[in-house]
């Protein structure tokens, strides 16, 4: 796994996700200015057979990217800001296309699920900050929201490893030397 830094910021990789996970945080870029921090997240998303089968059977999947801006404290980090981006991926049987809508309520259509996932696997968020801080870090996690599944599916999803698509939390510290 490659951990790349922006040309102005240096981001150190601590945890780049588990190798066997279906959802993996691939890379995080951060651009820090005096007012905000813009975070670009790239993930590697792959569905399991069960989830793909569910998708083809009309079960919409909610993919949630959780991104948190943490500030390192004396003993442990404190979550300063937190946001999430939700993508709703479903299959349109009449058109045979995969549809993705997100928080922005824009519907995107794709011929294949891989195209749809390729659309989902990168996102960017902006955190408003009052000043530059050297002790900031970005934590990223991506998962399928099991609570959004139809009720009968939830117990199965709860106990089945095929549905355990959540990535681990990845910490990406931001080097203070970075300047805009």
């Amino acid at each position: 796994m490659k951990c790349r830094f922006g040309n102005l910021f240096a981001v150190s990789l601590f945890v780049c996700g588990a190798a066997h996970a279906q959802f993996v945080v691939d890379q995080v870029d951060a651009i820090q200015s005096d007012e905000d921090i813009r975070v670009q997240v790239d993930l590697d998303l792959n569905l399991t057979d069960a989830t793909e089968r569910a998708l083809s059977h009309g079960v919409p999947l909610i993919v949630v990217h959780e991104i948190a801006l943490n500030q390192r404290g004396w003993l442990w980090s404190r979550i300063e800001q937190r946001t999430s981006v939700r993508y709703r991926l479903r299959y349109h049987v009449l058109s045979g296309r995969y549809l993705v809508d997100s928080n922005e309520a824009v519907l995107n259509t794709f011929r294949s699920v891989s195209d749809a996932l390729e659309f989902i696997d990168s996102t960017s968020v902006t955190f408003d900050v009052s000043a530059r801080h050297a002790d900031h870090s970005v934590a990223v996690r991506s998962r399928i929201d099991i609570n959004a599944l139809p009720a009968p599916l939830r117990p199965t999803a709860l106990f089945s490893p095929q549905w355990q698509l959540s990535s681990d939390w990845s910490q990406w510290p931001i080097n203070e030397l970075s300047t805009n």
Partner: peptide
């Protein structure tokens, strides 16, 4: 159709 397919898929679960 989607609802029905969901139900079919959710039968065993």
């Amino acid at each position: 159709s989607a609802r029905y397919r969901q139900m079919v898929f959710s039968r065993r679960p």
